[in-house]
Structures are given as structure tokens and as C-alpha cells.
Write a protein that binds this DNA or RNA. Structure first.
Length: 834
RNA sequence: GCUCCAGUGGCGGAAUCGGUAGACGCGUUGGACUUAAAAUCCAAUCGGGGCUCAACCUCGGUGCCAGUUCAAGUCUGGCCUGGAGCACCA
């Protein structure tokens, strides 16, 4: 065996061997229980970055660990390959986005293989290939049939830089999630997916996801935003047209209804013109025009300084008979509730600010009995007792919510209402590089879905990518015109493509049955593999991808395509990879290229380091010194194996845990115990929360223990050789999920049969996984005063006895009275004295 | 403003049930080997105080203030700081 460690040589050899022999191919059924380990699939941007390396290494170690522990493991990979960067690259060079994408996939595939990831490449899925997007389109049609897809004219978010609309989830602080441009509002007819129909289930089923972090679950819960309240309808008393009108409002504070002093409708409110008097028309029109011109950003930045104008008309409060004015103000949002708000300045901070500014009246209706407030300086928004509220006076406001709404129900001007903040998912994109929406517009029949046997609707190739301001798809001379599948007359194709998040909402299902050309996936196979046992990916997908995928699973379940409710049983959101304290990015110039690490130190070093310094969920700070340290450690491991290769017993290699090793000296006994302890510790650390950083600490401890042992053994007898073999072979297996190449090479050099990655995981003996003696701590009044080395099996009584007999303790307790002695078996004795 | 997460040496972090705070590593310092360097190996490394130095002894210490307990990094209450998400959602 070579005495020096040459990772580059070893790694290229095994990479080719694993690839040629399809070592990581997964059968759908091999009699073992299933385990599905999944990383969020990458966008083929060109090269892997360290975030990918971290993500895929974590999942890979989990997959290998589960495989060694007797599971049939599904560990696939694919490409989220539709999307704008490919199209932008194409437009820049007037080239084909497909070519750009294919080249990137080819390069990144080599990088993934170099990293030693145990994927079943036969299940590779590429969302931009017709054999995949055919089924994306098919699923679209199933949702259409179910009434979960519809087209409507709506105010939508438009990114001028990307030249397309965006879903609400893709607008971050009023800016485009991808390019950071300010998003504009546009009125367009677009396709929507009715995710709101599942709002309640998406919320309540979060409780089923015990394997998800609370942070992600709260983010989703907040996004869905369920609230309970009431709708009240206020009759308009002086509509200019003279017609009978009413304004409905949604409120979560029906208990404050006696305190209404005005009412606000959004500038975009549909009946606003009919509610405006001739005198106020000009001012209202101006205000509305101004609101329309303002971008989302400006509307947000007007935070706290509220503006508005009166409409001139009035409503009647059916509870009190009071008449109050109608206003329009942009703090009322047209998309939420009814687009109108009942204003109670005394008990709502926004209404309070507005009323102060425009000198509108206020009326206190909720009082804190212990600390009454007249709400002159601020709104009182907490719970209290109703006052000035007619028959409800004296009632607790929490009860009054129900009682007051009930009165509105009984008298016919209101009802109970549950409201969600979640909006329907806008999926049309005015771009080329996506799955075409499989719909045609017939001159006679209107909207007609493409029949399933005509799928896929292929992306046209005869397009001009140099166009600006419109989708390249519209430049195709052959794509647009077609025949109506119903009447055979002239029809035009839908030019929009689907949001790529549609493609990524079902890829994890396709992996189960990736090569099926008859259906999107076989129901039985999907039911067998899913749900995903462990999903690993970035926290940035906490809302977008994870919410959409949960919705898709539920919708496809209701289409009869599968039989489970949630796609991802356990979710690990890994932290970011930082360098010098900030996120790695090209603009900051603090990126580290994985290729360079592979070239200089090898993939095993990269894998070891990326797992070593932080627990997976926390951010990870990349340091060159840390890489160096990991490389040195692997060298140390290699030297340990290489310099002792001739002392390794073949019987032990063949069956390390069945050879009973007799120990006749303490050093040997201690090393055996250490190995058992480390097997137990490492196994538990991986099982509990995937604490790979402590796993790696334990690798180091184990290696240090073996070196220490060797230091005590200038010459090795037969027993020593068996003990050493057991320690080294166990160490290699324990390290094999992380240092995949080094351990495989060492295993072969030592004469092991087959692949170390097919060897079962190490077992430990509970009796051997503890040391023969323990350090008993003796405290006085909770402070450590002495440590005594005692036998591990010592009884409680003996512990107390030995503690009290210690010279040091005797001295310290001399002249004091012992009140109590607490004995924690196997740990410590605490003596309470006065 | 609301919600969630976090706060431990010079640094990354460890501490399973409340039971020895600082595992393991990085860095630093000293030493061995070497003509020299690299590599490697060994040792020290939370702070204050005591002792001429050292071994050693002693006190303090996990963001801050209280509390519960024989015992608190860990539990409870209140704050402070940082990060993330949502944000005029009625």
C-alpha cells in the first residue's frame, strides 16, 4: 500500500468504476424497507457552487448511512432546467437556450460525479425535456378538468426587466425575486391555479409535519394567513344615482362595530365611482390616478403617513342607526377581504392615524376596566369590556365578537367569515424557455384544452431570440396557428409558458418512475416510494417551492393519482455557505470554486470540511485553513492505515464484529471500548438531527485513540493485531459515508471483498460501549470540590461512602453539619452543608 | 409593528434527562526531528488573584436582571443584542 495519500489518483479511479458498474442503481423492490433521501434539484446555471456541495453532501451521507443500515434507498438527482437565465443567455448570443442548458448539465453532471454522490443516474429527470414536460402539461390538463386552473383578467405583478408577470410569492419587498427590479402593476388576462381552494388544508396539515422546523411552518402559516372575523353590509344612504347600494366590509373586530366613525374603500374598489358625489369626483379621480401611478415600493414607503379623500356619500350603521362618511384611502387593499374597511379609530392604530390627520370623530367602545383610556393619544387595541355599545355594554369583547356577529346574521346584514391572505397562484409567463401551456383559442369554441393524445405541445425551434420586449415564442412562424381540436376550424396557440415552479412541484414524484412513457408515474410505485423520508435544501424555498409542492400533492391526490397527503415527511433546511462572514457571491468576489478544491485537495476533503464545522441547519463559514485542516486529517487517516496494512487480520476484515477478541491487557480493553463508544456515538449523532459536525469530531477522537494506543505498543502480538484490525476496519466503515473515496481505496488495499459501501454499518455492544471506570464528581453545595476515579458498576451507597471518606471532603466539611447528600448514579455526589 | 430563530474562549463550535462548562478542530505559543524548510510528532492555551517561578491553591465565568432547585449554558418571567420571514391583511 502506498504510504502517501494521492486523492486525485484514487478519486478518478473510483469515480469511473462506480459509474461504469452503476453501483448506486436502485431497484424499486429488493425486499428491504424503503428510504427516500432527496436534495432540492439544481438549476443548471453552469457550475456547482458551495451551497450545492453542502446540500448534496448532506443528503448523500444520509443516503449512504441508511443504505448501510439495511434500507432500500432512493437517492435521485435531476435538473430544474427551464427558466430565464438560459433564455437570457440565448438572447445575448442569439443562440438556443437548449444548447446552453445541455452544456451546463453535462458539466455539472461531471462535477456531481466527482463529488462522489451516490445517485441512481438512471432516474435522472430534466424538466426541459419533452419526455418530462409532456407530463407537466398533462398534469395542467388534469387540474384544468378539476376546475383548479382558470384564466382571468387581473391586476398582476409585472417585472419590466424580466418582461413577464410574477406570482405573489415571487415579489419580495415590491421587487422581482430574481433580478431585483421594481415590480409594476398591470391588468392582464392570465392563467391562475386555485391554490386558495386548499388554503385550509395546507394550514391544518402543517401539524402533521412533525419532521419540519417550526421556522418553516410558521412562515407558511403566516403566508397562508388565516383569520376569523365577520362580514358586515352597510347600506348607502345617499348614492348619487339614487339606487339602493351597500358596502360590505370584512373585520376581525366585530366587537368594535359601535365605534365606527367612517368607512374606507380602496382606490381600486369596483363601485367607487358610483359612490362618489359630483362635487368630490375631481379630487377622488386625482387621488385614484395618483395611487395607480405609484409603484408597490412607493406605496410601501408611504408607511405611517396615510392619505385619502372623502367620496361625499354616507353609510348607515345598522347597529346604531348612525350615519358616517365614506372615504377612499390606499391603506385599504382591494385584494384583501372586500376591499373596504370599517374604521374604528379608537381601537385600530391605522384608523387612529388617519382619523387624527383628517380630524375625524372617535368613539371609545372597549375599556380596560383597570386602566381606562379615552384613546386621545393612541388606539387601545387590547381586550376589554364593551362600553357605548347598546345592549352589549359590559360584555367582554372576546364574547362580544360572537354575539355581535350573531345579531348581524339574525337581522340579515352580516355573517361569520374566515379569511385567508393566500392568493391564487399566477402561472402564466410571457417567456420562451418554459413548458407551453397546452391550450388553444378557437375562433368559434373559445378556450380549448389540447387533447391528451396530442401532448406534448413542443416548444418551437424556429424562433428569433434577438427580439426585445416580447416573448421569442411569438416570432415562430409555425407555432401560433393551429386547428381547433373540437371543430377543426382555425385556432391560435397560447403563447405563454408555465412558471417553472410548476415543473418543480412534482419532480420528486417522477423520480419514483422516471422512465415511464405511458403515464406521468405509476400510482403503486409512487405510493411505495413516497413520501420523501428526508428532504434537504435551502431555507429560501420555505414558502415558494415547498408550499407549491404540498399543494400539488394534495391536488394530485384528489385527481386520484396518488394516496398520501404530504410529500415531504422530514425537512432539513441547511444554512448558507459564507466566506468572511457574508454570503458567497460573484459580485462580492468571495466565491470558492469546487473544482479547485477537488483538484488541490480532492472531493473527500471537500465533503469532510463542508460537514465539519457547523451543524447542517446553521450557516457555515468557509475558511481556507479549515480545508487545509481536513486535508491533513485525511492524510493522518491514510498514514494510519498504510503504515499498519501488514498488521491487519483478514479474519477481522471479513467479519469485524463476529470475531470475539480476547483482551489480556488494559490498553487493548480500553481501545475496544473506545471503538464501541464511538460507534454508538457516531450512529446516534447521525440518527438525531444529522449532527455531522460532532460525527467528525468523533472520527478525530477515534483516530487519536488508535494513534495513542500504537504509541504504547512498540511490538504487536497476535491479540494486538486483532484489536488494531478491529479498530481500523470499524473506523473505515464509520468514515465511509463521508470520505467515500479514501475508505474505498483503503478497504481494497487491505484486501476487503467488494465495496466498503456495501458493507453493513458497525454494531456496538452496549456493555462495551462504556468505560470500565468513571470519574465521580463530588460537590459541596453544588460546587465541584473533588473528583474520584471509581469502578463503573459502583453502587449508590458506595458512591456516598467514598465521597464522604475522601480526605479533601472531610477537611472541607469539618465543623459543618451535613444536611443532605444527593447521589446521581454513575455521575456525582452533592453534599449540602451548613 | 408582528412571528420565528439565535447569543458559550482569539475563532468554528461541544455539552442526550437540569448534574465536571469549553469535547473536537482552527489559530497562537513553546519544543522534538532536520544543515535548513516543508511535512510530521509532543506540549500549553477562559479570566482574575495567591506563590520568586512552577506544580499547586483559590475565586469568578455561558448577552443582562430576577426566580425555581441540593444543583441552571440547559427550566420560568422580564429585558438587551443580532439574524430571518411577514408587513397598511382591517
Amino acid at each position: 500500500m502506498k504510504q502517501s495519500y494521492y486523492p486525485q489518483e484514487i478519486e478518478k479511479k473510483w469515480k469511473k468504476y462506480w459509474e461504469d458498474n452503476k453501483v448506486f442503481k436502485t431497484e424499486n423492490d429488493n425486499g428491504k424497507p424503503k428510504y427516500y433521501a432527496l436534495s432540492m434539484f439544481p438549476y443548471p446555471s453552469g457550475k456547482l457552487h458551495m451551497g450545492h456541495v453542502r446540500n448534496y453532501t448532506i443528503t448523500d451521507v444520509i443516503a449512504r448511512f441508511k443504505k448501510a443500515n439495511g434500507f432500500n434507498v432512493l437517492h435521485p438527482i435531476g435538473w430544474d432546467s427551464f427558466g430565464l437565465p438560459a433564455e437570457n443567455a440565448a438572447m445575448k448570443h442569439n443562440a438556443d437556450p437548449e444548447k446552453w442548458t445541455d452544456e451546463n448539465i453535462a458539466y455539472m453532471t461531471e462535477q456531481l460525479k466527482m463529488l462522489g454522490l451516490s445517485y441512481d443516474w438512471d432516474r435522472e429527470v430534466t424538466t426541459c425535456k419533452p419526455d418530462y414536460y409532456k407530463w407537466t402539461q398533462w398534469i395542467f390538463l388534469q387540474l384544468y378538468k378539476k376546475g383548479l386552473v382558470y384564466k382571468k383578467e387581473a391586476a398582476v405583478n409585472w417585472c419590466p426587466s424580466c418582461g413577464t408577470v410574477l406570482a405573489n410569492e415571487q415579489v419580495i419587498d415590491g421587487k422581482c425575486w430574481r433580478c431585483d427590479s421594481e415590480v409594476e402593476k398591470k391588468y392582464l388576462s392570465q392563467w391562475f391555479v386555485k391554490i386558495t381552494e386548499y388554503a385550509d388544508e395546507l394550514l391544518t396539515d402543517l401539524d402533521l409535519l412533525t419532521g419540519w422546523g417550526d421556522n418553516v411552518k410558521t412562515m407558511q402559516a403566516n403566508w397562508i394567513g388565516k383569520s376569523h372575523g365577520a362580514i358586515f353590509r352597510f347600506p348607502v344612504v345617499d348614492a348619487p344615482s339614487g339606487e339602493k347600494m351597500e358596502v360590505p366590509v370584512y373585520t376581525t373586530r366585530p366587537d368594535t362595530v359601535y365605534g365606527i366613525t367612517y368607512l374606507v374603500v380602496a382606490p381600486e374598489y369596483k363601485d367607487i365611482e358610483k359612490l362618489t358625489t359630483e362635487e368630490n369626483k375631481k379630487a377622488v379621480e386625482e387621488y385614484r390616478a395618483n395611487a395607480r401611478k405609484m409603484s408597490e415600493i412607493e406605496r410601501l414607503s408611504t408607511d405611517r403617513t396615510k392619505t385619502g379623500v372623502p367620496l361625499g356619500t354616507h353609510c348607515k350603521n345598522p347597529f346604531t342607526g348612525e350615519i358616517f362618511p365614506l372615504w377612499t384611502a390606499d391603506y385599504a387593499l382591494v385584494e384583501y377581504g372586500t376591499g373596504a374597511v370599517m374604521a374604528v379609530p379608537t381601537h385600530d392604530t391605522r384608523d387612529f392615524d388617519f382619523a387624527k390627520k383628517y380630524n375625524l370623530p372617535m368613539k371609545v367602545v372597549i375599556q380596560n376596566p383597570d386602566n381606562p383610556s379615552n384613546c386621545e393619544n393612541e388606539a387601545y387595541v387590547d381586550d376589554g369590556i364593551l362600553v357605548n355599545s347598546g345592549e352589549f355594554n359590559g360584555m367582554k369583547n372576546t364574547q362580544a365578537k360572537k354575539a355581535i356577529t350573531q345579531k348581524a346574521v339574525d337581522e340579515g346584514f352580516g355573517e361569520f367569515k374566515t379569511q385567508f391572505r393566500l392568493r391564487d397562484w399566477l402561472i402564466s409567463r410571457q417567456r420562451y424557455w418554459g413548458a407551453p401551456i397546452p391550450v388553444v383559442y378557437c375562433d368559434k369554441c373559445g378556450i380549448v384544452p389540447v387533447p391528451e393524445d396530442q401532448l406534448p405541445v413542443l416548444l418551437p425551434k424556429d424562433v428569433d431570440f434577438s427580439v426585445v420586449g416580447k416573448s421569442p415564442i411569438t416570432t415562430s412562424p409555425t407555432f401560433k396557428d393551429t386547428v381547433c381540436p373540437v371543430c377543426g376550424g382555425h385556432a391560435t396557440r397560447e403563447p405563454d409558458t408555465m412558471d417553472t415552479f410548476i415543473c418543480s412541484s412534482w419532480y420528486y414524484l417522477r423520480y419514483a418512475d422516471a422512465n415511464n412513457d405511458k403515464e406521468c408515474f405509476n400510482k403503486d410505485i409512487v405510493n411505495k416510494w413516497l413520501p420523501v423520508d428526508q428532504y434537504v435544501g435551502g431555507i429560501e424555498h420555505a414558502i415558494l417551492h415547498l408550499l407549491y409542492s404540498r399543494f400539488f400533492t394534495k391536488a394530485l391526490r384528489d385527481c386520484g393519482l396518488l394516496d398520501f397527503d404530504e410529500p415531504f415527511k422530514n425537512l432539513l433546511t441547511q444554512g448558507m455557505v459564507l466566506k468572511d462572514g457574508s454570503k458567497m457571491s460573484k459580485s462580492k468576489g468571495n466565491t470558492v470554486d469546487p473544482d479547485e478544491i477537488f483538484e488541490n485537495y480532492g472531493a473527500d476533503t471537500a465533503r469532510l470540511f463542508i460537514l465539519s464545522d457547523s451543524p447542517p441547519a446553521r450557516d457555515f463559514d468557509w475558511s481556507d485553513a479549515g480545508v487545509e485542516g481536513c486535508y491533513k486529517f485525511l492524510n493522518r487517516v491514510w498514514r494510519l492505515v498504510a503504515s499498519n496494512a501488514e498488521n491487519i487480520s483478514h479474519d477481522v476484515i471479513a467479519c469485524p464484529h463476529s470475531v470475539a477478541i480476547q483482551t489480556t491487557d488494559k490498553a487493548n480493553d480500553d481501545l475496544i471500548r473506545t471503538v464501541h463508544m464511538q460507534i454508538k456515538g457516531i450512529t446516534n449523532d447521525i440518527t438525531n438531527e444529522f449532527q455531522f459536525n460532532t460525527v467528525i469530531s468523533k472520527y478525530r477522537e477515534l483516530v487519536n485513540s488508535i494513534y495513542d494506543w500504537l504509541g504504547k505498543k512498540p511490538e504487536l502480538n497476535e491479540e494486538d493485531k486483532n484489536v488494531l484490525s478491529f479498530a481500523i476496519v470499524s473506523m473505515l466503515k464509520l468514515m465511509s459515508p463521508v470520505a467515500v473515496y479514501l475508505t474505498e481505496e483503503a478497504w481494497h488495499e487491505l484486501g476487503g471483498e467488494g465495496s466498503i459501501h456495501d458493507q453493513p454499518w458497525c454494531k456496538w455492544d452496549e456493555n462495551l460501549a462504556k468505560s470500565s471506570s468513571i470519574t465521580m464528581v463530588v460537590q459541596i453545595n453544588g460546587k465541584v470540590k473533588d473528583k474520584i476515579e471509581v469502578d463503573a458498576e459502583i453502587s449508590k451507597e458506595d458512591m456516598e461512602k467514598q465521597a464522604l471518606e475522601s480526605d479533601k471532603i472531610k477537611e472541607l466539611t469539618d465543623g459543618k453539619s451535613i444536611i443532605k447528600v444527593i447521589v446521581v448514579p454513575g455521575k456525582l455526589v452533592n453534599i449540602v452543608v451548613k
